[in-house]
């Protein structure tokens, strides 16, 4: 049982939890994730470790309520517990001094970008961050990102805040201004990562993306998370989650992410119908 110490609403349907997990807090590195199971009947869902405090023994998770499990998780409060937390999982981000690193985060993808931006800065890079969301009240971590970046640019799709347009447009502008970029890290919805990769590919800028396929065990045992990278099948949970964005078959990933749409809908409807009351196993 892992106690939730702090639960905060960051934006519409986006929550931030601080959970006591001392062993994971000590061990985790940027780019890694955990798998969480709320209770006995729950599924195993992966979430990025957005931050950690080794001394306090806590990790921070930021998640968007998109379906049954995340909605149920969002109903928990400080003092509640989740039954399982497994991690740290995945290969940590390769951090080194590249020179200038552009960190691009879209929507909930800003959460996994944050620890990477922080580590890149600590490694001596010039960090330029571009974050964006559909609309102003979905934007998260602006202050935190500003703190770890040398410069921060913000966009919203609807123009309700910052630049009116996409993060990829800002990236294109920066490139057009002639700045030398040594690495781009892009995390967000697949369409966003795909567009960013198209932009950087034209300019031969190395681009790392973090993929989020459906996972089950997240230990390399089942193959649910397989994606095609550079023509080869890879398991995202153990070989990733980060890959060279120019090599990823995004079209396949999108289709695989949608494999259970009907069941997910049924699951969410059943849950809401029960008034979100089916909280078996939660103390």
């Amino acid at each position: 049982m892992f106690p939730i110490l702090e639960a905060r609403l960051l934006a519409t349907a986006v929550k931030q939890f601080k959970i006591a997990a001392p062993e994971i807090a000590k061990k985790r590195k940027p780019g890694q994730f955990i798998v969480l199971r709320i209770h006995e009947e729950g599924e195993r869902i992966p979430l990025t470790i957005a931050d950690a405090d080794a001394e306090a023994g806590t990790i921070t998770l930021i998640f968007q309520e998109v379906g049954k499990s995340t909605e149920q998780l969002g109903k928990l409060k400080a003092g509640d517990t989740v039954s399982d937390l497994i991690g740290p999982l995945g290969v940590p981000t390769h951090i080194e001094k590249y020179g200038t690193v552009v960190c691009v985060g879209g929507g909930i993808g800003i959460a996994p970008v944050y620890p990477i931006a922080k580590a890149m800065r600590e490694a001596g890079n010039t960090v330029i961050s571009i974050i964006g969301a559909r609309t102003k009240n979905l934007l998260i971590l602006e202050e935190e990102m500003a703190r770890v970046s040398h410069s921060l640019k913000v966009s919203t799709d609807d123009g309700s805040y910052g630049y009116h347009g996409f993060v990829s447009d800002i990236l294109q502008d920066i490139i057009d201004e002639g700045m030398t970029i040594n690495l781009v890290v892009a995390i967000g919805p697949v369409p966003m990562m795909r567009v960013v990769c198209n932009v950087t590919k034209n300019h031969k800028i190395k681009t790392v993306v973090s993929l989020n396929p459906i996972m089950v065990d997240a230990t390399g045992m089942c193959g649910a998370c397989r994606v095609t990278v550079g023509g080869r099948t890879r398991f995202v949970c153990v070989d990733g989650p980060e890959f060279d964005g120019h090599e990823v078959n995004f079209a396949e990933l999108v289709k695989r992410q949608r494999a259970y749409l009907n069941q997910e809908k049924l699951s969410l409807e059943t849950f809401r119908h029960q008034g979100g009351a089916c909280m078996g196993g939660i103390s």
């Binding site: 009947e41 729950g42 599924e43 195993r44 049954k68 499990s69 089950v216 259970y260 069941q263 997910e264 049924l266 699951s267 059943t270």
Partner: peptide, 12 residues
């Protein structure tokens, strides 16, 4: 994950 008991169990 007891998916045969879906949706009582969450895994599809």
């Amino acid at each position: 994950m007891k998916a045969y008991l879906f949706p009582k169990y969450d895994t599809p």
